[in-house]
């Protein structure tokens, strides 16, 4: 019960913070625009293809089939995968950090623990508030995506279920980053380091691991259509791939999400991706490991601690 009070208090406090609203606004805006961007790009490239066909026919060349025919209806939300990897994860880190450092910033840790409150209840309350806030944000995003798809493409029960499934997977991916933000917020005595450490982990997971495991350039991996990155027959690159690929959580999240949304193959890497079941298993391991970090940080949390250093 006390955990619920803590969670309620955390949520109320979060909604009073301007920086939270700033990140939330960016995420919601991007949810709104991503479907439109996807739709506009899809329509324009189809028109570009039609123009190219005219040129090819005038040159007497063979006209290849349109690479954009038979696109799945949820193709227009493919950008959301990238925005969850980019903005969603950072939003989760920021929320986790804010929840983790709030009591220390206010200097009320000792007062809180002078009441009959255990560390476990404290941690459950914080983690619960994090989960609930992320859930609410993704619910809003799901509603926006569903309405946008219904207006710009088509909607059915099956498509809606696919969208829900995608947002459930996104929730767990973001939750892992939220746990890191919360864990380091509780563990570190310096606010900047507490925020930076999970951001460094985020940089490694989002940019460095895909480059090492699949030879993807850091910013190319943000593109919904990945460039040709054949690792070819290099034994050294194969070895690097074999070592790093299992840990490349962002790639597994992308593979799993693309599968759920029935998107077309988006990369030409020579290695086949893991099956969705293995990707889901790795994603589950990601949440378990980050919750382990959170539990460890709580065990190290000093309840006689004063305020946090800025």
């Amino acid at each position: 019960m006390r955990s619920f009070f803590i969670a309620k208090n955390e949520i109320q406090h979060l909604f009073r913070e301007r920086t939270f609203f700033l990140m939330l606004t960016v995420f919601i805006l991007i949810s709104l625009t991503s479907t439109y961007i996807g739709w506009a790009s899809q329509h324009t490239v189809e028109s570009v293809y039609q123009e190219s066909v005219i040129t090819l026919q005038s040159l007497g060349k063979t006209v290849p089939p349109s690479p954009f025919s038979n696109l799945p209806p949820l193709e227009i939300v493919k950008n959301m995968i990238i925005y969850v990897v980019l903005i969603g994860s950072l939003l989760a880190i920021t929320i986790g950090h804010s929840i983790g450092t709030k009591d220390q910033r206010a200097g009320v840790v000792r007062i809180l623990f002078s009441k009959p409150l255990t560390k476990k209840e404290f941690l459950i309350g914080k983690a619960l508030s994090l989960g609930l806030v992320l859930f609410a944000i993704l619910m809003v995003s799901l509603i926006i995506s569903a309405i946008s798809v219904a207006i710009l493409s088509q909607m059915s029960i099956v498509l809606l279920l696919q969208l829900i499934e995608f947002y459930v997977v996104s929730f767990f991916y973001m939750l892992g980053f939220g746990f890191l933000g919360l864990g380091f917020g509780l563990m570190k005595r310096n606010s900047a380091i507490a925020l930076l450490t999970p951001i460094v982990i985020w940089v490694v997971i989002t940019f460095a691991l895909p480059e090492m495991s699949s030879a993807l350039y850091p910013t190319s991996s943000l593109n919904p259509i990945l460039p040709q990155t054949e690792i070819l027959n290099s034994p050294v690159l194969s070895a690097i791939h074999n070592v790093f690929y299992p840990f490349s959580v962002s790639e597994h999240y992308r593979v799993l999400s693309s599968g759920i949304l029935n998107l077309q193959e988006t990369t030409d890497t020579i290695y086949s991706n893991y099956s969705p079941i293995i990707c889901a298993f790795i994603l589950a391991a990601w949440v378990i490991i980050t919750s382990g970090v959170l539990t460890y940080s709580m065990s190290k949390f000093d309840i006689s601690r004063g305020d946090i250093y800025e």
Binding site: I37, G38, A40, S41, T44, V45, V48, Y49, S52, L56, K61, P64, P67, F68, N79, I82, L86, T219, L222, N223, P224, I225, L226, P227, Q228, E265, T266, T267, D268
Partner: peptide, 22 residues
Amino acid sequence: PQIGDTMDPDNQVPGGFFKSIG
């Protein structure tokens, strides 16, 4: 930059759309 790349017609097919149609 990601929005710009997404809107690029040549960026819709791995290896480039225009290259794919010669």
